[in-house]
Amino acid sequence: MNTRFLEAFVWVVRLGSFRGAAERLNLTQAAISSRIASLEEDFGQRLFDRDPRELKLTSAGRVLLSYAERMLEIGRDMQAAMRTNSELSGTLRIGVVETIVHTWLIDFLNALKSRHGALEIQLTAEPTHRLHDDLRRGQLDIAIQTDAVLDETIRNREIGLMPMGWIGPPSGAGAAKTMLTLAELAERPLIAMTRGSQPHLALLDTCRREGVTPKTIHCVSSIAAIIRLAGAGFGAAVLPLAAIRAELAAGTLSIIPCTASLGPLRLVVSHRIDPTTRAAEVVAALASEEALKFALDVGAEMATPAREG
């Protein structure tokens, strides 16, 4: 997505007119109109209600505004960082949780290779608590995971949320067709990720809130393994929906209707402070940018950006 188009959109909103945005960006009014039209074509929705007396955002325009402002902010952060380190080199050790592997990791690595081809990346995928330990011990430079690392040598930045759901086999293959209570759902085995992970804790918190004691909770570290278990009807799984969007679209998994809702999966990028290089800071900003792009692409049902401030 062209950030110049987003910049034009934001300035039209701030100044209340296409003419004002054109003057601010030293462009013609026709160029501003063309950029807004391109955005509307990309998203398939009108962004403005064009009243002769007043320019008003549509509901789609209001949704896009928060994303656009955030993306431009990330762009400014990256430009500032790049002015200090125009060429990144050396080795950067990055750790991610499984959810990132199943969502926007490939796009992130491709962007990293395109912008900083001289930077050698060493990648590992581990649960959050292990990534925290490795980051504190200096065995990682960056961790993309689910909780802030409380350490004065490490900086944290929230990069978004991913809704979680109760997941089961395909519809028609033993999947629930009616709304279930958590007590009914817990009559079968429940499957969560690693013990102490956000999905596991979300499951336990929801059970406590509903006064339900599950008979069996299986803790499995691999999302791929959980997908196979849930798809075979072995149990009801707790998973971030974005990580299984392909399976949901293909109908190989389905969302189990349940009266008990789960909180979202929180995502954080953490990096070590290194006075000798800003490579980790620059790459952490790129991770934040990719998280935002992913949220914009898949929509709020799958992912939402971090709130500003």
Rank of each mutant, 00 (worst) to 15 (best):
E120L: 08
D205S: 15
S17T: 15
I226L: 12
V283C: 04
A80F: 07
P163C: 10
L190A: 01
T194S: 15
R24Y: 15
G61F: 03
G44K: 13
E290Q: 15
K215R: 15
G160I: 02
R307M: 07
A37N: 10
L296G: 10
P189G: 03
E98C: 04
R62A: 09
F234Y: 06
R46N: 09
S261G: 06
S222Q: 12
E187C: 04
L150G: 04
A125C: 13
E187W: 01
S261I: 03
A284T: 08
R70I: 02
E290D: 04
H129T: 11
L203R: 00
A192G: 15
H271K: 04
T28V: 02
T103K: 04
L88N: 03
R14H: 08
P52T: 10
A8V: 12
T252P: 10
R83C: 02
T216R: 13
I191Q: 02
N2R: 14
I255P: 01
V13W: 06
I144Y: 15
V101L: 14
L267G: 01
G233S: 05
L47G: 00
W166S: 01
D42R: 15
V97P: 00
A22T: 12
V97D: 08
L248N: 09
I106H: 13
E98Y: 03
F48G: 03
F294T: 03
A300Q: 12
R53L: 13
L88C: 09
L241R: 09
V12Y: 01
A280S: 12
L119P: 02
T99H: 07
L88F: 09
I244Q: 02
F5P: 00
A291G: 08
I217L: 02
I94F: 13
Q45D: 08
S221E: 14
G235Q: 03
G233E: 04
A81T: 09
F43G: 08
S270L: 06
D274C: 09
A250M: 11
T194D: 12
V97N: 07
Q145S: 13
M164I: 12
A148L: 04
T28R: 05
A260P: 05
L161R: 14
T91A: 08
Q145K: 05
T277M: 02
I273E: 11
R76K: 12
I106T: 14
L239Q: 03
Q122Y: 06
